[in-house]
Amino acid sequence: MFTIRKKELLANNIYLMDIEAPRVAKSCHPGQFVIVKMDEKGERIPLTICDYDREAGTVAIVFQAVGESTKRMADYEVGDTFRDFSGPLGCKSELIDEDPEELKKKSILFVAGGVGTAPVYPQVKWMHEQGYNVDCIIGARNKDLIILEEEMKKVARNVYVATDDGSYGFKGNVNDKIKDLVNNEGKHYDHVIAIGPIIMMKFVSILTKELGIPTTVSMNPIMVDGTGMCGACRLTVGGEVKFACVDGPEFDGHLVDFDESMKRQQMYKTQEGREILKEKEGATHKNGGCGCGGND
């Protein structure tokens, strides 16, 4: 049993929880994820590790209550327990093993879309702790869906907020902001790390390819076991089939077959999932859920 130590509403429908899981807290790294199973009958739900405290033995997860399972999860309170909490799974972010001297010379831009801000945060925090300065764009449909802005400001050199409707920060989607930074503000970036809905990652990757900036994306396909046993999470990267749970979840954005992944992600959403999503999120869900506007 894994106890919920903290619960916080970050934004409309987006929750943060600290879970007591000493084994995971001890060995996890930015870029990895866990699988949560709430109770006997629950699904195995993959969620990115957003933060961790090795001393306290806790791991932070951030999730958006979008469907049946995540909505049920939102009803859990501090002191309640999850039956299963497995991880860390997947590979750590490649930045962690990069040569520090090389990394120091690089100018890095993180692009976070909607709830994707959650997995971006620990990476930016890690970079900050190692003494690297990075920039970060947080994109969302509107002001109410911006999460972790204050936390991010403490660890990033520059934080740019972009909202589709202009209700806060820059008016436009994350791609508009990237173009703005590169073309109007004279910024130069050596690497982009984009994490958010697939559609956003797809369009960021198309843009950065034009701009010639190497790009890493974090894929979140449907998963079952998360250990390489079922193949549900397979995707095509550079013409090769990869399993996101063991080979990823981070991949080269210029090589991922996003269209195939988008179709695969719809597999279970076409049934009960989509009905709920429609009801909760209106027409926006077809944009990928976060409303970051990456679908232009």
Partner: peptide
């Protein structure tokens, strides 16, 4: 536990499973 696939066209389509996924 690692499932094999054939490597034929269309294998990543929706509705194609490894036996492991289906049975799991």
């Amino acid at each position: 536990g690692l499932p094999k696939f054939m490597g034929i066209p269309g294998e990543n389509a929706n509705g194609v499973f490894s036996a492991n996924e289906y049975l799991t």
